[in-house]
Nucleic acid binder design. Structure first.
Lengths: 252, 252
DNA sequence: GCGATCAGCGGCACG
DNA sequence: CGTGCCGTTGATCGC
Protein backbone atom coordinates (compact mmCIF):
# COMPACT_ATOMS: atom_id res chain seq x y z
CA UNK A 1 0.00 0.00 0.00
CA UNK A 2 1.29 3.44 -0.91
CA UNK A 3 2.26 5.87 1.84
CA UNK A 4 0.19 8.85 0.65
CA UNK A 5 -2.91 6.70 0.60
CA UNK A 6 -2.21 5.27 4.03
CA UNK A 7 -1.46 8.70 5.38
CA UNK A 8 -4.69 10.15 4.08
CA UNK A 9 -6.60 7.16 5.35
CA UNK A 10 -5.26 7.67 8.85
CA UNK A 11 -5.72 11.43 8.88
CA UNK A 12 -9.26 11.18 7.63
CA UNK A 13 -10.08 8.46 10.10
CA UNK A 14 -8.68 10.41 13.06
CA UNK A 15 -10.81 13.37 12.10
CA UNK A 16 -13.88 11.22 11.73
CA UNK A 17 -13.46 9.41 15.04
CA UNK A 18 -12.95 6.04 13.45
CA UNK A 19 -10.81 3.09 14.47
CA UNK A 20 -7.56 2.74 12.55
CA UNK A 21 -5.98 -0.62 11.84
CA UNK A 22 -2.62 -0.74 10.16
CA UNK A 23 -0.25 -3.61 9.37
CA UNK A 24 3.25 -3.21 8.09
CA UNK A 25 6.98 -3.35 8.60
CA UNK A 26 8.29 -0.77 11.02
CA UNK A 27 10.77 0.30 13.66
CA UNK A 28 9.55 1.93 16.86
CA UNK A 29 10.99 4.32 19.39
CA UNK A 30 9.44 5.23 22.71
CA UNK A 31 10.49 7.69 25.37
CA UNK A 32 8.57 8.65 28.48
CA UNK A 33 8.32 7.01 31.88
CA UNK A 34 10.75 4.53 30.40
CA UNK A 35 12.30 4.25 26.94
CA UNK A 36 12.40 1.54 24.33
CA UNK A 37 13.31 0.77 20.79
CA UNK A 38 12.85 -2.11 18.44
CA UNK A 39 14.26 -2.77 15.01
CA UNK A 40 12.44 -3.76 11.86
CA UNK A 41 9.59 -6.21 11.92
CA UNK A 42 5.98 -6.66 10.88
CA UNK A 43 3.50 -5.33 13.40
CA UNK A 44 -0.09 -4.39 13.92
CA UNK A 45 -0.97 -0.83 14.83
CA UNK A 46 -4.36 0.05 16.31
CA UNK A 47 -5.43 3.63 16.93
CA UNK A 48 -8.69 4.43 18.66
CA UNK A 49 -10.54 7.72 18.44
CA UNK A 50 -9.95 8.38 22.14
CA UNK A 51 -6.21 8.44 21.55
CA UNK A 52 -5.50 4.87 22.55
CA UNK A 53 -2.46 3.69 20.61
CA UNK A 54 -1.39 0.05 20.46
CA UNK A 55 1.43 -1.71 18.65
CA UNK A 56 1.36 -5.51 18.64
CA UNK A 57 3.90 -8.04 17.51
CA UNK A 58 2.84 -11.31 15.92
CA UNK A 59 3.01 -13.12 19.25
CA UNK A 60 2.33 -12.32 22.86
CA UNK A 61 -0.61 -10.89 24.61
CA UNK A 62 0.57 -7.42 25.48
CA UNK A 63 1.28 -4.53 23.17
CA UNK A 64 5.00 -3.84 22.93
CA UNK A 65 4.34 -0.12 22.77
CA UNK A 66 1.22 1.67 23.81
CA UNK A 67 -0.34 4.89 24.92
CA UNK A 68 -3.58 5.24 26.83
CA UNK A 69 -6.61 7.34 25.94
CA UNK A 70 -5.76 10.99 25.44
CA UNK A 71 -2.70 10.73 23.30
CA UNK A 72 -2.46 12.95 20.23
CA UNK A 73 -1.70 11.15 17.01
CA UNK A 74 -0.08 12.59 13.91
CA UNK A 75 1.15 11.20 10.60
CA UNK A 76 3.90 12.31 8.27
CA UNK A 77 5.95 11.09 5.34
CA UNK A 78 9.65 11.61 5.70
CA UNK A 79 12.76 10.09 4.15
CA UNK A 80 10.75 7.37 2.51
CA UNK A 81 9.04 6.40 5.72
CA UNK A 82 5.51 6.76 6.95
CA UNK A 83 5.86 8.04 10.49
CA UNK A 84 3.00 7.77 12.94
CA UNK A 85 3.47 9.55 16.25
CA UNK A 86 1.54 9.38 19.48
CA UNK A 87 2.20 12.02 22.07
CA UNK A 88 0.83 12.61 25.50
CA UNK A 89 1.59 14.74 28.54
CA UNK A 90 -0.63 13.29 31.23
CA UNK A 91 1.66 11.47 33.63
CA UNK A 92 4.56 13.13 31.82
CA UNK A 93 5.62 13.81 28.25
CA UNK A 94 5.60 10.58 26.35
CA UNK A 95 6.21 9.93 22.69
CA UNK A 96 5.95 6.90 20.47
CA UNK A 97 7.24 7.01 16.94
CA UNK A 98 6.33 4.24 14.55
CA UNK A 99 8.44 4.35 11.41
CA UNK A 100 6.84 2.29 8.67
CA UNK A 101 9.14 1.06 5.93
CA UNK A 102 6.27 -0.75 4.33
CA UNK A 103 2.52 -0.72 4.81
CA UNK A 104 0.64 -3.89 3.94
CA UNK A 105 -2.75 -2.75 5.05
CA UNK A 106 -4.33 0.34 6.46
CA UNK A 107 -7.98 1.09 6.91
CA UNK A 108 -10.45 2.54 9.37
CA UNK A 109 -13.84 1.61 10.73
CA UNK A 110 -16.79 3.31 12.28
CA UNK A 111 -17.44 1.60 15.55
CA UNK A 112 -20.81 1.97 17.22
CA UNK A 113 -20.78 0.56 20.69
CA UNK A 114 -22.42 2.05 23.74
CA UNK A 115 -22.20 -1.07 25.87
CA UNK A 116 -20.06 -1.95 28.82
CA UNK A 117 -18.73 -5.32 29.85
CA UNK A 118 -20.54 -6.97 32.72
CA UNK A 119 -18.04 -8.84 34.84
CA UNK A 120 -18.91 -11.41 37.47
CA UNK A 121 -16.76 -12.88 40.21
CA UNK A 122 -14.78 -9.81 41.16
CA UNK A 123 -13.40 -9.48 44.65
CA UNK A 124 -15.86 -6.74 45.40
CA UNK A 125 -18.75 -8.99 44.48
CA UNK A 126 -17.36 -11.82 46.60
CA UNK A 127 -16.94 -9.43 49.51
CA UNK A 128 -20.54 -8.29 49.28
CA UNK A 129 -21.71 -11.90 49.41
CA UNK A 130 -19.30 -12.93 52.12
CA UNK A 131 -20.50 -10.07 54.32
CA UNK A 132 -23.87 -11.82 54.56
CA UNK A 133 -22.28 -15.20 55.22
CA UNK A 134 -19.80 -14.54 58.00
CA UNK A 135 -21.46 -17.31 60.02
CA UNK A 136 -19.75 -19.66 57.56
CA UNK A 137 -16.52 -18.62 59.21
CA UNK A 138 -17.80 -19.03 62.72
CA UNK A 139 -21.09 -18.62 64.58
CA UNK A 140 -21.62 -15.20 66.04
CA UNK A 141 -19.28 -13.40 63.67
CA UNK A 142 -21.14 -10.29 62.56
CA UNK A 143 -20.24 -7.75 59.89
CA UNK A 144 -19.48 -4.19 60.96
CA UNK A 145 -18.37 -2.56 57.75
CA UNK A 146 -17.14 -3.37 54.27
CA UNK A 147 -14.20 -1.59 52.67
CA UNK A 148 -13.28 0.25 55.84
CA UNK A 149 -10.55 2.87 55.60
CA UNK A 150 -7.93 3.01 58.29
CA UNK A 151 -4.87 5.24 58.37
CA UNK A 152 -2.72 2.64 56.68
CA UNK A 153 -5.03 1.37 53.98
CA UNK A 154 -8.47 -0.10 53.63
CA UNK A 155 -9.77 -3.31 55.18
CA UNK A 156 -11.95 -5.52 53.00
CA UNK A 157 -14.34 -6.52 55.77
CA UNK A 158 -14.46 -5.39 59.38
CA UNK A 159 -16.35 -7.68 61.77
CA UNK A 160 -16.89 -8.56 65.40
CA UNK A 161 -16.85 -12.01 66.94
CA UNK A 162 -19.10 -13.39 69.66
CA UNK A 163 -16.58 -12.38 72.31
CA UNK A 164 -16.76 -8.79 71.14
CA UNK A 165 -13.32 -8.78 69.54
CA UNK A 166 -12.67 -6.84 66.38
CA UNK A 167 -11.87 -8.98 63.35
CA UNK A 168 -10.16 -7.77 60.18
CA UNK A 169 -10.86 -9.91 57.12
CA UNK A 170 -8.75 -9.78 54.01
CA UNK A 171 -10.32 -11.39 50.96
CA UNK A 172 -8.57 -12.60 47.82
CA UNK A 173 -10.25 -13.94 44.73
CA UNK A 174 -7.20 -16.02 43.89
CA UNK A 175 -4.30 -17.67 45.67
CA UNK A 176 -2.98 -15.50 48.49
CA UNK A 177 0.73 -14.81 48.75
CA UNK A 178 3.06 -12.97 51.08
CA UNK A 179 1.66 -9.63 49.98
CA UNK A 180 -1.83 -10.55 51.18
CA UNK A 181 -0.54 -11.57 54.62
CA UNK A 182 1.59 -8.44 54.84
CA UNK A 183 -1.41 -6.34 53.95
CA UNK A 184 -3.54 -7.99 56.62
CA UNK A 185 -0.78 -7.51 59.15
CA UNK A 186 -0.63 -3.80 58.41
CA UNK A 187 -4.36 -3.41 58.98
CA UNK A 188 -4.37 -5.46 62.18
CA UNK A 189 -1.45 -3.51 63.61
CA UNK A 190 -3.19 -0.26 62.80
CA UNK A 191 -6.45 -1.40 64.35
CA UNK A 192 -4.74 -2.66 67.47
CA UNK A 193 -3.00 0.63 67.94
CA UNK A 194 -6.34 2.36 67.64
CA UNK A 195 -8.39 -0.05 69.76
CA UNK A 196 -5.74 -0.73 72.35
CA UNK A 197 -6.50 -4.41 72.40
CA UNK A 198 -5.96 -7.54 70.40
CA UNK A 199 -7.53 -7.69 66.94
CA UNK A 200 -8.00 -10.92 65.01
CA UNK A 201 -6.82 -11.20 61.43
CA UNK A 202 -8.51 -13.56 59.00
CA UNK A 203 -7.45 -14.27 55.45
CA UNK A 204 -10.03 -15.72 53.06
CA UNK A 205 -8.81 -17.02 49.71
CA UNK A 206 -9.22 -20.06 47.47
CA UNK A 207 -5.58 -20.96 48.07
CA UNK A 208 -2.56 -19.78 49.98
CA UNK A 209 1.10 -20.33 49.25
CA UNK A 210 3.08 -22.42 51.72
CA UNK A 211 5.32 -19.51 52.58
CA UNK A 212 2.41 -17.15 53.14
CA UNK A 213 0.74 -19.70 55.41
CA UNK A 214 3.89 -19.89 57.53
CA UNK A 215 3.99 -16.15 57.91
CA UNK A 216 0.28 -16.07 58.64
CA UNK A 217 0.65 -18.65 61.39
CA UNK A 218 3.63 -16.83 62.81
CA UNK A 219 1.54 -13.70 63.09
CA UNK A 220 -1.27 -15.57 64.79
CA UNK A 221 -3.71 -15.02 61.97
CA UNK A 222 -6.23 -17.47 60.56
CA UNK A 223 -6.79 -18.81 57.08
CA UNK A 224 -10.10 -19.86 55.62
CA UNK A 225 -10.22 -21.62 52.29
CA UNK A 226 -12.83 -19.94 50.19
CA UNK A 227 -14.71 -22.12 47.75
CA UNK A 228 -16.80 -20.18 45.29
CA UNK A 229 -18.35 -20.57 41.89
CA UNK A 230 -19.37 -18.01 39.35
CA UNK A 231 -22.92 -18.91 38.48
CA UNK A 232 -23.77 -16.40 35.80
CA UNK A 233 -24.92 -13.76 36.30
CA UNK A 234 -23.45 -13.68 39.77
CA UNK A 235 -21.07 -15.41 42.12
CA UNK A 236 -21.88 -17.76 44.93
CA UNK A 237 -19.93 -18.97 47.93
CA UNK A 238 -19.96 -22.75 48.07
CA UNK A 239 -17.96 -23.24 51.22
CA UNK A 240 -15.60 -21.70 53.70
CA UNK A 241 -13.38 -24.07 55.54
CA UNK A 242 -10.91 -23.39 58.30
CA UNK A 243 -7.45 -24.49 57.39
CA UNK A 244 -6.16 -26.01 60.58
CA UNK A 245 -3.15 -24.29 61.93
CA UNK A 246 -1.18 -25.41 64.92
CA UNK A 247 1.08 -22.89 66.56
CA UNK A 248 4.66 -23.89 66.05
CA UNK A 249 3.81 -26.32 63.30
CA UNK A 250 5.39 -24.04 60.76
CA UNK A 251 8.97 -22.88 60.82
CA UNK A 252 9.96 -19.24 61.28
CA UNK B 1 -18.66 -9.39 4.40
CA UNK B 2 -20.25 -12.80 4.10
CA UNK B 3 -19.85 -15.31 6.91
CA UNK B 4 -18.58 -18.24 4.81
CA UNK B 5 -15.85 -16.08 3.41
CA UNK B 6 -14.88 -14.75 6.83
CA UNK B 7 -14.96 -18.22 8.27
CA UNK B 8 -12.71 -19.63 5.57
CA UNK B 9 -10.39 -16.68 5.90
CA UNK B 10 -9.98 -17.30 9.61
CA UNK B 11 -9.59 -21.05 9.30
CA UNK B 12 -7.03 -20.75 6.57
CA UNK B 13 -5.13 -18.09 8.48
CA UNK B 14 -5.02 -20.13 11.66
CA UNK B 15 -3.59 -23.06 9.73
CA UNK B 16 -1.02 -20.87 8.05
CA UNK B 17 0.15 -19.16 11.24
CA UNK B 18 -1.00 -15.75 10.16
CA UNK B 19 -2.41 -12.85 12.14
CA UNK B 20 -6.18 -12.47 11.96
CA UNK B 21 -7.87 -9.09 12.15
CA UNK B 22 -11.64 -8.95 12.22
CA UNK B 23 -14.07 -6.08 12.71
CA UNK B 24 -17.79 -6.45 13.18
CA UNK B 25 -20.86 -6.35 15.35
CA UNK B 26 -20.93 -9.02 18.03
CA UNK B 27 -21.92 -10.18 21.47
CA UNK B 28 -19.38 -11.91 23.70
CA UNK B 29 -19.52 -14.40 26.53
CA UNK B 30 -16.64 -15.42 28.72
CA UNK B 31 -16.38 -17.98 31.48
CA UNK B 32 -13.27 -19.03 33.34
CA UNK B 33 -11.50 -17.53 36.32
CA UNK B 34 -14.29 -14.98 36.21
CA UNK B 35 -17.23 -14.58 33.84
CA UNK B 36 -18.47 -11.79 31.65
CA UNK B 37 -20.90 -10.90 28.96
CA UNK B 38 -21.53 -7.94 26.75
CA UNK B 39 -24.36 -7.18 24.38
CA UNK B 40 -24.20 -6.07 20.77
CA UNK B 41 -21.62 -3.62 19.61
CA UNK B 42 -18.89 -3.11 17.03
CA UNK B 43 -15.53 -4.52 18.07
CA UNK B 44 -12.11 -5.45 16.83
CA UNK B 45 -10.94 -9.03 17.14
CA UNK B 46 -7.27 -9.93 16.85
CA UNK B 47 -6.07 -13.51 16.80
CA UNK B 48 -2.37 -14.33 16.80
CA UNK B 49 -0.88 -17.60 15.64
CA UNK B 50 0.32 -18.40 19.16
CA UNK B 51 -3.28 -18.48 20.38
CA UNK B 52 -3.42 -14.92 21.70
CA UNK B 53 -7.00 -13.72 21.43
CA UNK B 54 -7.99 -10.08 21.91
CA UNK B 55 -11.31 -8.28 21.66
CA UNK B 56 -11.21 -4.50 21.74
CA UNK B 57 -13.97 -1.94 22.00
CA UNK B 58 -13.73 1.39 20.22
CA UNK B 59 -12.32 3.07 23.31
CA UNK B 60 -10.07 2.15 26.17
CA UNK B 61 -6.66 0.66 26.33
CA UNK B 62 -7.31 -2.84 27.49
CA UNK B 63 -9.04 -5.64 25.68
CA UNK B 64 -12.47 -6.33 27.17
CA UNK B 65 -11.98 -10.04 26.60
CA UNK B 66 -8.75 -11.84 26.01
CA UNK B 67 -6.87 -15.06 26.15
CA UNK B 68 -3.14 -15.46 26.35
CA UNK B 69 -0.88 -17.53 24.10
CA UNK B 70 -1.92 -21.17 23.95
CA UNK B 71 -5.63 -20.84 23.47
CA UNK B 72 -7.26 -22.97 20.80
CA UNK B 73 -9.41 -21.06 18.35
CA UNK B 74 -12.30 -22.41 16.32
CA UNK B 75 -14.90 -20.92 14.00
CA UNK B 76 -18.43 -21.97 13.16
CA UNK B 77 -21.58 -20.67 11.53
CA UNK B 78 -24.69 -21.22 13.55
CA UNK B 79 -28.16 -19.69 13.66
CA UNK B 80 -27.13 -16.92 11.36
CA UNK B 81 -24.10 -16.01 13.44
CA UNK B 82 -20.41 -16.39 12.91
CA UNK B 83 -19.10 -17.78 16.17
CA UNK B 84 -15.43 -17.58 17.03
CA UNK B 85 -14.34 -19.47 20.13
CA UNK B 86 -11.13 -19.39 22.10
CA UNK B 87 -10.55 -22.12 24.62
CA UNK B 88 -7.75 -22.80 27.01
CA UNK B 89 -7.04 -25.03 29.98
CA UNK B 90 -3.83 -23.59 31.38
CA UNK B 91 -4.76 -21.90 34.64
CA UNK B 92 -8.18 -23.55 34.32
CA UNK B 93 -10.76 -24.15 31.62
CA UNK B 94 -11.60 -20.84 30.03
CA UNK B 95 -13.80 -20.09 27.08
CA UNK B 96 -14.57 -16.97 25.09
CA UNK B 97 -17.35 -16.98 22.55
CA UNK B 98 -17.61 -14.13 20.10
CA UNK B 99 -20.93 -14.14 18.28
CA UNK B 100 -20.76 -11.99 15.19
CA UNK B 101 -24.06 -10.69 13.85
CA UNK B 102 -22.20 -8.82 11.17
CA UNK B 103 -18.65 -8.83 9.87
CA UNK B 104 -17.37 -5.62 8.32
CA UNK B 105 -13.87 -6.78 7.70
CA UNK B 106 -11.83 -9.92 8.13
CA UNK B 107 -8.38 -10.65 6.82
CA UNK B 108 -5.08 -12.15 7.80
CA UNK B 109 -1.44 -11.23 7.49
CA UNK B 110 1.88 -12.96 7.44
CA UNK B 111 3.98 -11.34 10.09
CA UNK B 112 7.73 -11.72 10.01
CA UNK B 113 9.33 -10.42 13.14
CA UNK B 114 12.18 -12.00 15.04
CA UNK B 115 13.01 -8.97 17.12
CA UNK B 116 12.48 -8.18 20.76
CA UNK B 117 11.79 -4.87 22.40
CA UNK B 118 14.74 -3.26 24.16
CA UNK B 119 13.50 -1.52 27.27
CA UNK B 120 15.46 1.01 29.29
CA UNK B 121 14.80 2.37 32.73
CA UNK B 122 13.48 -0.74 34.40
CA UNK B 123 13.84 -1.17 38.13
CA UNK B 124 16.34 -3.93 37.61
CA UNK B 125 18.51 -1.62 35.54
CA UNK B 126 18.26 1.13 38.15
CA UNK B 127 19.18 -1.36 40.86
CA UNK B 128 22.29 -2.45 38.97
CA UNK B 129 23.41 1.16 38.67
CA UNK B 130 22.51 2.07 42.22
CA UNK B 131 24.55 -0.84 43.53
CA UNK B 132 27.68 0.92 42.26
CA UNK B 133 26.59 4.27 43.69
CA UNK B 134 25.65 3.49 47.26
CA UNK B 135 28.06 6.21 48.40
CA UNK B 136 25.43 8.63 47.07
CA UNK B 137 23.30 7.50 49.98
CA UNK B 138 26.07 7.79 52.53
CA UNK B 139 29.82 7.36 52.66
CA UNK B 140 30.92 3.87 53.61
CA UNK B 141 27.75 2.15 52.52
CA UNK B 142 28.87 -0.89 50.55
CA UNK B 143 26.84 -3.36 48.52
CA UNK B 144 26.63 -6.95 49.68
CA UNK B 145 24.16 -8.50 47.27
CA UNK B 146 21.46 -7.57 44.77
CA UNK B 147 18.13 -9.34 44.63
CA UNK B 148 18.74 -11.28 47.81
CA UNK B 149 16.19 -13.92 48.76
CA UNK B 150 15.07 -14.18 52.35
CA UNK B 151 12.37 -16.43 53.75
CA UNK B 152 9.71 -13.80 53.33
CA UNK B 153 10.53 -12.35 49.94
CA UNK B 154 13.48 -10.88 48.11
CA UNK B 155 15.35 -7.71 48.96
CA UNK B 156 16.32 -5.43 46.09
CA UNK B 157 19.71 -4.51 47.50
CA UNK B 158 21.45 -5.75 50.61
CA UNK B 159 24.23 -3.53 51.95
CA UNK B 160 26.39 -2.77 54.97
CA UNK B 161 27.06 0.61 56.48
CA UNK B 162 30.32 1.92 57.91
CA UNK B 163 29.27 0.79 61.38
CA UNK B 164 28.87 -2.76 60.10
CA UNK B 165 25.10 -2.73 60.29
CA UNK B 166 23.05 -4.57 57.70
CA UNK B 167 20.98 -2.33 55.46
CA UNK B 168 18.01 -3.43 53.37
CA UNK B 169 17.25 -1.19 50.42
CA UNK B 170 13.94 -1.23 48.58
CA UNK B 171 13.96 0.50 45.23
CA UNK B 172 10.99 1.81 43.28
CA UNK B 173 11.10 3.27 39.79
CA UNK B 174 8.02 5.37 40.54
CA UNK B 175 6.27 6.93 43.50
CA UNK B 176 6.32 4.66 46.53
CA UNK B 177 3.14 3.95 48.46
CA UNK B 178 2.14 2.00 51.53
CA UNK B 179 2.82 -1.27 49.79
CA UNK B 180 6.48 -0.39 49.28
CA UNK B 181 6.94 0.47 52.95
CA UNK B 182 5.12 -2.69 53.98
CA UNK B 183 7.36 -4.72 51.74
CA UNK B 184 10.48 -3.16 53.22
CA UNK B 185 9.18 -3.76 56.72
CA UNK B 186 8.69 -7.44 55.99
CA UNK B 187 12.27 -7.80 54.79
CA UNK B 188 13.75 -5.89 57.69
CA UNK B 189 11.78 -7.90 60.24
CA UNK B 190 12.92 -11.10 58.61
CA UNK B 191 16.55 -9.99 58.54
CA UNK B 192 16.46 -8.85 62.15
CA UNK B 193 15.09 -12.17 63.24
CA UNK B 194 17.91 -13.87 61.39
CA UNK B 195 20.73 -11.53 62.42
CA UNK B 196 19.53 -10.93 65.94
CA UNK B 197 20.29 -7.25 65.76
CA UNK B 198 18.92 -4.06 64.35
CA UNK B 199 18.76 -3.78 60.58
CA UNK B 200 18.31 -0.49 58.75
CA UNK B 201 15.64 -0.09 56.14
CA UNK B 202 16.04 2.36 53.28
CA UNK B 203 13.49 3.20 50.64
CA UNK B 204 14.68 4.76 47.38
CA UNK B 205 12.08 6.16 45.01
CA UNK B 206 11.46 9.29 42.94
CA UNK B 207 8.52 10.15 45.20
CA UNK B 208 6.70 8.87 48.23
CA UNK B 209 3.12 9.44 49.30
CA UNK B 210 2.55 11.42 52.50
CA UNK B 211 0.90 8.47 54.19
CA UNK B 212 3.69 6.10 53.24
CA UNK B 213 6.25 8.56 54.59
CA UNK B 214 4.44 8.64 57.92
CA UNK B 215 4.49 4.89 58.17
CA UNK B 216 8.13 4.81 57.09
CA UNK B 217 9.10 7.28 59.79
CA UNK B 218 7.05 5.38 62.35
CA UNK B 219 9.02 2.25 61.54
CA UNK B 220 12.30 4.10 61.81
CA UNK B 221 13.16 3.66 58.16
CA UNK B 222 14.78 6.20 55.86
CA UNK B 223 13.69 7.67 52.55
CA UNK B 224 15.97 8.80 49.77
CA UNK B 225 14.57 10.69 46.82
CA UNK B 226 15.91 9.10 43.68
CA UNK B 227 16.48 11.36 40.73
CA UNK B 228 17.20 9.53 37.52
CA UNK B 229 17.00 10.02 33.80
CA UNK B 230 16.72 7.56 30.99
CA UNK B 231 19.47 8.53 28.60
CA UNK B 232 19.02 6.12 25.75
CA UNK B 233 20.27 3.47 25.62
CA UNK B 234 20.59 3.30 29.36
CA UNK B 235 19.53 4.91 32.59
CA UNK B 236 21.57 7.18 34.80
CA UNK B 237 21.19 8.27 38.39
CA UNK B 238 21.31 12.03 38.64
CA UNK B 239 20.97 12.41 42.37
CA UNK B 240 20.01 10.78 45.61
CA UNK B 241 18.89 13.05 48.34
CA UNK B 242 17.95 12.24 51.90
CA UNK B 243 14.48 13.34 52.75
CA UNK B 244 14.82 14.77 56.22
CA UNK B 245 12.80 12.98 58.77
CA UNK B 246 12.44 13.99 62.37
CA UNK B 247 11.12 11.41 64.77
CA UNK B 248 7.72 12.39 66.00
CA UNK B 249 7.24 14.89 63.24
CA UNK B 250 4.69 12.65 61.63
CA UNK B 251 1.52 11.45 63.28
CA UNK B 252 0.78 7.81 64.00
C1' DG C 1 -6.91 15.39 41.76
C1' DC C 2 -4.22 12.03 44.72
C1' DG C 3 -4.09 7.66 46.93
C1' DA C 4 -4.80 2.85 47.85
C1' DT C 5 -6.08 -1.47 45.90
C1' DC C 6 -7.69 -4.86 42.45
C1' DA C 7 -6.79 -7.19 38.02
C1' DG C 8 -9.84 -13.07 34.45
C1' DC C 9 -3.90 -8.89 36.07
C1' DG C 10 0.58 -10.61 32.48
C1' DG C 11 5.36 -11.40 32.45
C1' DC C 12 9.86 -12.72 34.24
C1' DA C 13 13.32 -14.76 36.92
C1' DC C 14 14.70 -17.93 40.26
C1' DG C 15 14.31 -21.84 43.40
C1' DC D 1 6.35 -26.06 38.49
C1' DG D 2 5.38 -22.77 42.12
C1' DT D 3 6.51 -18.25 44.32
C1' DG D 4 7.54 -13.65 44.47
C1' DC D 5 7.40 -9.24 42.40
C1' DC D 6 7.78 -5.77 38.71
C1' DG D 7 4.93 -3.22 35.20
C1' DT D 8 5.73 2.79 30.58
C1' DT D 9 1.38 -1.63 34.85
C1' DG D 10 -4.11 0.00 33.79
C1' DA D 11 -8.65 0.64 35.88
C1' DT D 12 -11.56 1.75 39.74
C1' DC D 13 -13.32 3.87 43.60
C1' DG D 14 -13.05 6.73 47.62
C1' DC D 15 -11.28 10.90 49.83
Amino acid sequence: MEFPQARKSIERALGAGKLVVCVGNCTIKYAGRAASKISEGDRLLVIKHDGTFLVHQSTGMKAINYQGPGSVVSVAEENGELIVKSERTKPMHELIEVHFKRVDYCDSFEMHDDTKLQLFGSEKELARILMQDLHLIEPGLTPLKGESDVKRGSIDILAQDSAGSTVAIELKRRSAGLDAVTQLKRYVEQLQKRKGRRVRGILCAPEITANALKMLAGEGFEFFKLDYEIANPSAKIKGLQRKQKVLGEYGP
